[in-house]
């Protein structure tokens, strides 16, 4: 049973290929699960992802307006993106938003997980509360926050009542703040997800280890940094990878809260793609943008995984 391994060792879980058991048992294993069983899944993934995406990606090299027959224009769309200040702004915004989101979400999530791991009597109720935003539709989340962050909305009213007038801001309309307001909403929504990942990681750490260290006289903070933290590495790998993909793809929250504005102050690659395609009718250009976003996510994911996996091994 799974519970058995929990006591033996924390098991790493990451995006890298699973390593099957080697040796004699391995050969028998292969026979146990014939490749043919995977064929329906492979075919489905091939058709729905690879074939369909390649069919769609071709438009990135055309001037397609969505209606007339597209004509091939080579790399012109990519050249234009590289020379476009707003496009580069969207790239910078995306990276900024994703980094702050990943850090914020994981720090808050880890803090919640450590606090709600054991001891507290209300921990189950509190975990539910912190996790609840994760299951809400982005649409609903955005509508509530748009209302709260309105310049004359509850947040500013509350700040006013607390005598903090100087902190009142045009949360969604100030070019210096809009992106971070979106980021705040995303952290609020997804911290519970990180908390859940870290909680599971904490639960996989054998109680005996902690107790042994405690008997040896190690302080709580020393125990955390020397024992708990390193053993959380696999959970961190999953949590960071997941939040990175969420952050780089940020769309719903941005679109519903600021529409990328004011101007391009909170534009991300995902909203830029959508606008170029469906507001400006530049389907080919939008497709080129989408390809760049995909390559970016692939690159970031690959580098991140390499680093996180190396860290897992080192710890």
């Amino acid at each position: 049973m799974p519970q058995r391994t929990r006591i033996v060792r924390p098991v790493s879980h990451s995006l890298s290929p699973p390593r099957p058991a080697a040796g004699l048992a391995g050969i028998r294993l292969s026979q146990r699960a014939p490749l043919a069983w995977a064929i329906p899944g492979i075919v489905l993934c091939l058709l729905f992802h690879y074939v369909a995406v390649v069919a769609g990606a071709w438009y990135a090299f055309t001037d397609w307006n969505g209606l007339s027959a597209p004509s091939f224009i080579g790399l012109a769309n990519f050249v234009e993106i590289l020379g476009n200040r707003n496009a580069l702004g969207a790239l910078v915004n995306t990276l900024l938003l994703a980094s702050v989101f990943v850090v914020g979400c994981n720090v808050v999530g880890l803090g919640l997980a450590i606090g709600l791991h054991r001891t507290l009597r209300s921990r189950f109720a509190l975990r539910s509360l912190f996790f609840a935003p994760v299951v809400m539709s982005p649409l609903a989340v955005a509508y509530i926050w748009q209302f709260i962050l309105d310049a004359r909305g509850p947040l500013n009213a509350m700040l006013g009542n607390l005598g903090l007038r100087s902190l009142q801001k045009v949360w969604l309309g100030d070019p210096n703040i809009a992106l971070w307001s979106v980021c705040l909403v995303m952290i609020w929504q997804f911290s519970g997800l990180c908390m859940a990942f870290y909680l599971a990681g904490l639960q996989s750490i054998p109680v005996e280890l902690d107790e042994a260290a405690s008997v040896d006289g190690a302080t709580a903070s020393r125990r955390f940094w020397r024992i708990t933290f390193p053993l959380l590495a696999p959970a961190a790998t999953v949590s960071i990878s997941m939040t990175t993909i969420l952050g780089l793809r940020a769309f719903d929250q941005v679109m519903a809260l600021t529409r990328g504005g004011p101007g391009f102050a909170s534009e991300t690659l995902a909203t830029a793609i959508f606008k170029e395609t469906f507001v400006n009718g530049r389907f080919g250009y939008g497709a080129a943008f989408a390809l760049i976003l995909t390559v970016l996510i692939l690159l970031v994911s690959a580098v991140q995984l390499a680093v996180l996996r190396a860290r897992e091994k080192r710890l």
């Binding site: 290929p17 699973p18 099957p20 294993l29 699960a33 992802h49 369909a52 995406v53 769609g56 976003l293």
Partner: peptide
Amino acid sequence: YVIARNTQRIGGLLYVFFVVGIILPYQMAI
């Protein structure tokens, strides 16, 4: 199950095949 219990190179390749599937922008496939 097939991927996890496959000892040959194909198991690892299939794993990557599906992971890249998560990242590909399905919007382009619509």
